[in-house]
Each structure stands twice: as C-alpha cells, then as structure tokens.
Design a protein around this nucleic acid. Structure first.
Length: 583
DNA sequence: GCCGTTTTCGGCCCGACTGTTTTCAGTCG
C-alpha cells in the first residue's frame, strides 16, 4: 500500500471525525499526518517494519498504530467503525464551498440531509432558510456552489490554467497602483494540479488595486471583495484570489501565500520557539509586539535563521530542517540540462524532421539529442517498421554529418506489449544507441499483471530508460495500477533510468514520485517527449520543476551529464547486456 | 491526536471576509 493510499484513509478519518463534531485539533492531527505521509519519500511499510514510523513529525503512537493495523489487515477497523456512524455521502457535502464540517454535521443531524441531491432539494424548497446561521443569501450561495461543483472538477491540471495565470499576473503588474505581482500558491510551487489561483501584489493603494482587479476582462464574477483582498471566478472556470499589501511587506505576503500550508505551519512553529510570530504582514517579536515587514522572501527566512527555500520544495517534508543546517541541496536548474533523451519526428507522430529536431536541439545549446520514434506495434502513432527504422538510421547518420557539434543518438521508444515482451527483437534493440521502453496499451490491466509487465521491461538487459512510468494524462487518464515500490527497486538494481516526462499534460513521474524513486536509489532523467521543435524548449521547464520538487541536483540526472559521460554510461550498459544476452 | 530549549498538560498558525449577527461563528487558504 502506497503512502498516498494511506494518506487517503487518514484524510477520510479526519473528514468523518470532523462531521461528528470531534475536537478540531484531533481532526487536524489526522489531516496533518496524511499530508506528512503524502510527502514522505520512504514507504510507510518499510518505516513500520523498522519501527520508525513515529519518527515522522506529526505521527504519534495512536496514528502509528492505526497505520500499522491498516498495513497488516489491508483495511482500517477504526475507519470502518466511523463509516458505520456517518453515511458515505455526507462527506460529499464538504465539497460544497461555503459548507464546512460544522454546517455539514448540523444539516445531517438536524435535517437528515445526507447527500448533495438532498441538499439541493432542501435549498430549492426554502427549507434551509431560518435554520440558525442560514439565511436567504447562504441558501442561494449553496445552490450556486452546487451548480459549479457539477460543472467543474475540483482540481485542474496546471497546464490548463497556466496561460490565464500569466495573463492576469501581467495585467496586475501593469496597474499604476501595483509595484509588483506574482502568481503564488500551487502555481509557484509547480504542482501538477491546482485548485485555484492565488495572486499577490505589492500596492501603494490596495483598495484601488482590488477595484481594478475585479474589473479584469478575465473575471467572470466576483465572489467576495474587501479592502485588501478579493475572490473572483475567472471565465476560464477557475477561482482566483488576490491579496495585497504595501510594498515593504511584499516578501512576507509572497512567502505566506506561496505555502504550502504544511510548510507555513512548520515555519510558524519554528518562529514561536524563537519568540517570533509570522504573518503576511511581517515577522512579529512577541516580547515587544513590534512587527517587522519583510520586503523580500529572503528576509523572512533570514529572520528565522534559515536559508532561502525554493518554492518547489516547500512541502513541510524536511526542507526547514535542512535550511536551518544550511544543507539544502543545490536543486537542478534548466541550464544544467545537457540534452534530451526522448523525442519524435515525422517518421512516427512528430511534426518535424530529424534534421529540424537536431538543429533545434543544437540551438538550445544541447550536447546531445536522442531520436526515439515509436515501434511497429503503435501503428496508429506511425510506429516504424524494421525497414523504416533502418532508413531512419541512415538519415540520422546523414544528419550527424550535416549538424556537427551535437551528438545525435538513434533510439526507439519501444512498446512494452501487454505480455511484457518488447515490440522490437533483441538484435534490433542491440543496434540502437538508446532504448526507451514505455507502456501505451492495455493500461487497464490489474495491478499484478501490469506490474509484472513493467518489471520485465525494467529488467530487460537492453532497456536503458523507462518512459512516463505511470502513463497518466492529467485530467484525462488515470495512472496504470503499478506497484511503484517494486518498479523503483528493480530500476535501482538494473540501473535503468526512470523518466520525468516534461510534457505538461504528463509530468510523469511527478516530483513526489521522483523523490521516492531517488530515495530508492534510482537514476532519473528529464525528457520532453517532444513531438515538435518548439516542445524541446517549452516543455523542459515543466520537467525540471518536477525534478526540483523531488529535491534532485544535477548529479542525480542522467541528462545533466556531458556527452562523454552519457556515452560511457550507455557503453557500459551495452557491454553488460551483451554479456547477459550472450549467455 | 501530537508535542516539548519555560511545558508530560495545555497548548495547538494567522488573518480576511461573509452572513447573520449586534459581537461573532464558520469558512477558507
């Protein structure tokens, strides 16, 4: 059972305790333990076996015992007892913005409302009105919120909102009342999916900035508006908040609303041990009550004795301790990338020729590029027959002569077939410079089968890279049901590199899984899987951001190595493979 | 339920906005 699955159980326990009216700090403890586990790179299963689960901050005796029960029995007796007390559908009510646990619990206990349909019916008939704390306006808000909930998923892929986020940011920066503005929150942390957009601005006249913001053409409707902050629904279908402060406190504001929540909680705990208190307005010394606003984020962290923590790793998973010890890793940067190990051309489903891709990669200053078109089994994506692959080898050789100064590798993105065999014969794979294996079909196979299939590829002596390991497409296709711990262990053993696919709709592995892979001793690489020349440049930052979220340095990534080192790595794999295949 | 450089008990991050209230609870991030 993965840490994410355990976290789900703990979150559900939290939801149900909340509705039952349990102490909010007890509820918070379960939610916090869930967040901690979600970010924990080591499998909880291993930590339990070693008796070290309680070493995680936020997990004490009671929760550790419940997690151990869950892992041993495959179900949580405690959660099952709670499920008997609260019907499943009541937790649906929490998804309605404006309805929290208090209201949900009361609706259920006092009116017998136990799902969204009943809530909607009650609101329509006017039955809610007159209950303590609920008037006509709340009733209307509930109806509107249910409508929106039906129309939109609760989280959107980052790439779906990235452009509108940038447009709003630029519009804010252009306002005369604003001196600086950013998209903070999960956008700034490069989370693969976002719930809403958080804008922050430094303003000499906050009320004027707020008034201008709610009039932006991107804004569909105004949800809430005050003197210093506002919440709107953008026409693009995502909620956006703007918070403003005077410029001298902009660093405090930016830090505060970049989050994550867990990071900020830990930061404030640290502050309190130093007699300080942090808010979006500054750092307050409790002894004097004096607040010192911070103009930059560096100032905020420095006042706590910390190095500046990059937004991508603000998860509350060890970064604050590392910043205090001055041992934060030097995270990989876009400039560290020396080449790209997966791209497509017009030979299969790409839109550019081998020559065009090579020139584009050279323009980026890359040392190498691997051409990896699809294998024959992917006929619908123009997978190459053996004959076409042969032709392409000749063309690659020709382009090598035409474009000196970049190492062009001839490879294949070979299909891992439903039975775990590869879609090209060994003697063909052996002649390629680089073999990238990937699952593209039969993605609904049960866990054991699909895991065995991927393990077979990872252990195949001629495979160098496993591409987009989970196969998920953000907002479109769920990941395959893979036992990733087993895959990571096998990749660490066989030396196969796992891909962080930089395609904005993939981000696969994402930062959190890549961190787990790295902790298991796996080598990683960041590839764009470009299907056009423009993708080589525009996708890479998305992949690098995921690598940064995984705490990776340039040393941890195969394609940050200079060409000679990469060639050495490939040669060593070939040598080992021929020894094994020859036996 | 978790946690400890004043604490094994008594705290637990902080502030804005809304709606329904005459001073605040609930929600959100």
């Amino acid at each position: 059972m993965t840490n994410q699955e355990i976290a789900q159980v703990l979150n559900e326990i939290g939801d149900r305790l909340d509705i039952l009216g349990e102490d909010s700090f007890k509820v918070g403890a379960y939610r916090r333990a869930a967040r901690v586990l979600e970010q924990e790179p080591y499998p909880a299963e291993a930590l339990v076996a070693e008796g070290r689960l309680q070493e995680l901050r936020g997990i004490g005796k009671a929760i550790a015992t419940k997690v151990a029960d869950l892992l041993r029995e495959g179900r949580s007796p405690y959660l099952e007892r709670l499920r008997e007390q609260v019907p499943d559908s009541v937790t649906e009510l929490l998804k309605v913005p404006g309805i929290g646990p208090r209201t949900a619990g009361r609706l259920w206990r006092e009116m017998g409302i136990s799902n969204l349909a009943e809530l909607e019916a009650a609101a329509r008939s006017g039955a809610l009105r007159g209950k303590p704390g609920i008037g006509g306006k709340t009733e209307a808000n509930i109806l509107a919120a249910i409508e929106r909930l039906r129309a939109r998923p609760d989280r959107l892929p980052l790439f779906r909102v990235y452009d509108v986020a940038r447009a709003v940011k630029e519009r804010l920066r252009a306002l005369p009342s604003i001196t600086d503005a950013d998209a903070a929150g999960s956008v700034r942390r490069w989370q693969p999916t976002v719930g809403d957009l958080d804008f922050v601005a430094a303003s000499t006249d906050p009320p004027a900035a707020i008034r201008a913001f709610v009039q932006f053409p991107e804004v569909g409707s105004v949800v809430a508006q005050g003197e210093t902050e506002a919440r709107v629904l953008l026409s693009a279908g995502v909620q956006a908040d703007l918070r403003t402060v005077h410029p001298e406190a902009y660093g405090s504001l930016l830090q505060h609303f970049t989050g994550s929540k867990e990071h900020n909680i830990q930061l404030r705990e640290l502050a309190s041990t130093k007699g300080l208190s942090i808010s979006e307005y500054g750092v307050k010394r409790l002894s004097t009550g004096e607040t010192k606003p911070c103009a930059t984020e560096e100032d905020v962290y420095r006042m706590l004795g910390l190095d500046l923590i990059p937004p991508e790793i603000r998860h509350g998973s060890g970064e604050i301790e590392a910043a205090a010890r001055h041992t934060l890793p030097k995270l990989v940067a876009h400039a560290d990338i020396r080449g790209d190990l997966q791209c497509h051309t017009t030979y299969s489903d790409g839109s550019a020729s081998v020559l065009e891709m090579a020139l584009a990669a050279k323009d980026l200053g890359y040392d190498y590029l691997a051409i990896t078109d699809h294998s024959p089994g992917r006929a619908n994506a123009g997978g190459l027959t053996l004959e076409r692959l042969q032709q392409q080898a000749a063309e690659v050789a020709e382009v090598r002569r035409q474009v000196p100064g970049i190492t062009l590798l001839h490879g294949s993105e070979v299909d891992i077939r439903a039975d775990g065999s590869l879609d090209l014969p060994d003697e063909v794979l052996a002649r390629l410079d680089l073999v990238v294996a990937a699952v593209h079909s039969a993605m609904g196979q049960p866990r054991e089968r699909v895991t065995a299939r991927v393990l077979a590829a990872v252990r195949h002596p001629l495979v160098d890279v496993l591409a987009h390991p989970t196969g998920r497409l953000l907002g479109e296709r769920d990941p395959i049901d893979l036992d990733l711990d087993a895959v990571f262990a096998a990749a660490a053993e066989s030396g196969v590199a796992l891909e962080i696919n930089a395609g904005p709709s993939r981000l696969d592995l994402d930062g959190s899984l890549a961190r787990q892979a790295h902790a298991a001793g796996v080598l990683l690489c960041v590839n764009t899987d470009a299907h056009a020349t423009a993708h080589l440049a525009s996708f890479m930052p998305w992949g690098v951001a995921q690598a940064r979220r995984a705490w990776l340095t340039a040393d941890d990534l195969l394609n940050c190595r200079p060409a000679p080192a990469l060639m050495e790595w490939l040669a060593a794999r070939k040598k080992r493979a021929s020894a094994r295949v020859g036996r």
